[in-house]
C-alpha cells in the first residue's frame, strides 16, 4: 500500500501545515510517511503545495506521479494537478474559490466551501483544517481522532486553547461533509 496526497493552494492558506498534520497522524498510527514541500519563492504569496506519501513499507519516492487524493484550495491548483489524480481517486475542491465543475469524470469530486465554513467558525485561517478533515475521511486510514491529536501536537507550542478548539471543529466539519 502506498498512497499519495497532494495539498495545493496559495501561499498562506496553510497548505504545508495541513500536510504536516496528516503526515504526523500517519506516523503516530505506525505508517511509513514522507512530507515534501514546494519550497522557496512560492512561500511568499505564490502557489504552495506539498506531497504526503503514506505507506506500509519504507517510502521510495517522495514525489508522486499520480496522487490518490488532491486537495485543491484554489483554481490554479486544480488546473495544475487534477489531470494527475489516479483514476478512482478523489479531488477535494475549495468551492469558495473554485467554480464547481466536473473536472474529471473518473474521480470522486468533493466540493466544500471551505472559506465560508472557516469564516463561520470564526477563524478564516482554518480552511485548511476543513480540507484535512475531508481528506482524512476519504483516505479512511485512521479515525479523525488521530488527525485531531496530530493537529494538537503540531500546533501545541503556538496553539492557544481557543485556536485548538476551532481547528478541532474545522476538522470535524470537513470530516462529516464527505459522504
Amino acid at each position: 500500500m502506498e498512497i499519495g496526497v497532494i495539498f495545493a493552494g496559495f501561499g498562506g492558506q496553510g497548505i504545508l501545515l495541513a500536510g504536516k498534520v496528516l503526515a504526523r497522524a500517519a506516523m503516530e498510527r505506525g505508517f511509513e510517511v514522507t512530507w515534501l514541500p514546494s519550497y522557496g519563492p512560492e512561500m511568499r504569496g505564490g502557489t504552495a503545495n506539498c506531497t504526503v506519501v503514506i505507506a506500509d513499507e519504507p517510502v521510495g519516492s517522495p514525489i508522486v506521479d499520480s496522487p490518490a487524493v488532491l486537495v485543491a484550495m484554489n483554481e490554479p491548483s486544480l488546473e495544475r494537478f487534477a489531470p494527475r489524480v489516479s483514476p478512482g481517486g478523489a479531488i477535494v475542491v475549495n468551492s469558495s474559490l473554485v467554480s464547481q465543475r466536473k473536472e474529471r469524470a473518473d474521480v470522486k469530486m468533493v466540493f466544500i466551501p471551505m472559506n465560508e465554513i472557516a469564516q463561520e467558525l470564526g477563524e478564516p485561517r482554518c480552511a485548511n483544517m476543513v480540507a484535512l478533515g475531508a481528506t482524512a475521511k476519504i483516505l479512511g486510514l485512521f479515525p479523525l481522532e488521530a488527525v485531531i491529536a496530530a493537529m494538537e501536537e503540531e500546533l501545541g507550542a503556538r496553539g492557544r486553547e481557543k485556536l485548538l478548539k476551532i481547528n478541532r471543529k474545522a476538522l470535524q466539519r470537513g470530516y462529516t461533509l464527505v459522504s
Binding site: 514522507t34 515534501l36 517510502v59
Partner: peptide, 10 residues
C-alpha cells in the same frame, strides 16, 4: 540535496 534537506520523514 534540496529534496532530502526539505522533506520530512519519521
Amino acid at each position: 540535496d534540496g529534496m532530502l534537506g526539505q522533506m520530512m520523514e519519521p
